[in-house]
Design a protein around this nucleic acid. Structure first.
Length: 307
DNA sequence: GCCCAGGAGTACT
DNA sequence: AGTACTCATGGG
């Protein structure tokens, strides 16, 4: 590898393989990663991130190395459940995705699974995207919205009912729909995104979290729903809205980080976790270390003010 | 054959 | 505000 970055409190494998991102593949002891027209090779040796193909500034931004993970931990580490997830997957950071690719990826994710989503996205890139030669291989750039294949072609690529959503989302994105989202507050941004066909609460929250850096967004998918109801609601059926409200109250401005740690923890360890007794109310409603709301607020303001 | 997968949209109460 | 059904496709 040609260059390196210091990367403390960072775990490349957890960050790439936790399920938040789809455009990577294993390559030797590292990975080849794509984002829009970028493509780089990366591996980790201790606290060093070795890379080539793009500059360090891009990687630093892409992997959110500017986030103070220890302060984030301090803000969300309030109970045994999230603590175990933080311990097992320490170093997982949210990836800053390209907004349009993020919309397309999570519309593609509807009622699907990670291997298939990855394949669908690669097929769309191969179909209409431009390509370039990188690391002795041809890599395909995911198409800008103007270039995404029409519904009929997407159906041939086995996108199923998502094909029509993707075509319309691409038309809106090409018209500039995503350009002003960052200016809006969370509720307005969410409502705007949900005007896109194929984007409801869950996909909107994924786009806000992964595509627009809204660290307070808390996507409720099947895994989070299953894990949260079991660990925090005594396995009682609970609405997604109630789950989100609970998460925002407990984890504050970094709820999105808590979501990703809980998601990968639940998805990878469910067999073990589901064999444990269902936690009683007192075990999960009692907060281990109460951090003052004002302190959390301060951290949130500092992080959000950075952009 | 069944059921489920990082759901959304629609038509019902 | 909750419920049931449908929408493709693939994998267990």
């Amino acid at each position: 590898m040609a260059d390196w970055l210091p990367a403390r409190d960072f775990n490349l494998r957890h960050t790439l393989e936790c399920g938040q991102y789809f455009r990577w593949r294993r390559d030797g002891d590292g990975y080849v990663v794509q984002s829009a027209d970028r493509c780089f090779r990366v591996s980790q040796k201790g606290d060093r991130l070795l890379f080539e193909g793009e500059d360090g500034w891009f990687l630093q931004h892409f992997f959110s190395l500017d986030h103070d993970l220890r302060e984030i931990r301090g803000a969300i580490d309030h109970d045994p459940v999230i603590r175990e997830a933080l311990d097992r997957y320490w170093g997982l950071r949210l990836i800053r995705q390209d907004p349009w690719e993020c919309v397309a990826s999570f519309v593609t994710s509807i009622a699907s699974n990670i291997p298939r989503i990855t394949r669908n996205i690669e097929d769309m890139a191969r179909e209409t995207g431009e390509s370039m030669e990188r690391f002795d291989r041809r890599v395909f750039i995911f198409p800008r919205p103007e270039r995404l294949a029409p519904e009929g072609v997407l159906r041939r690529l086995k996108l199923g009912f998502r094909a029509a959503y993707l075509e319309q989302a691409a038309r809106l994105a090409a018209a500039g729909m995503l350009d002003d989202i960052t200016c809006a507050n969370l509720g307005d941004a969410r409502d705007s995104l949900m005007c896109i066909p194929g984007v409801a609460e869950k996909v909107a929250d994924c786009v806000l979290l992964f595509g627009f850096g809204r660290l307070d967004a808390f996507p409720v998918d099947t895994w989070i729903r299953k894990a949260m109801t079991r660990f925090y609601f005594r396995n009682r059926r609970t609405s997604d809205d109630a789950i989100r409200t609970f998460a925002n109250e407990r984890f504050g401005g970094f709820a999105g980080y808590a979501q990703q740690y809980l998601f990968v923890h639940a998805r990878e360890n469910w067999k073990e976790l589901s064999q444990r007794p269902i936690p009683k109310r007192s075990e999960t409603t009692k907060i281990i270390r109460v951090s003052k709301a004002a302190r959390v607020r301060e951290l949130v303001d500092a992080v959000l003010a950075e952009r």
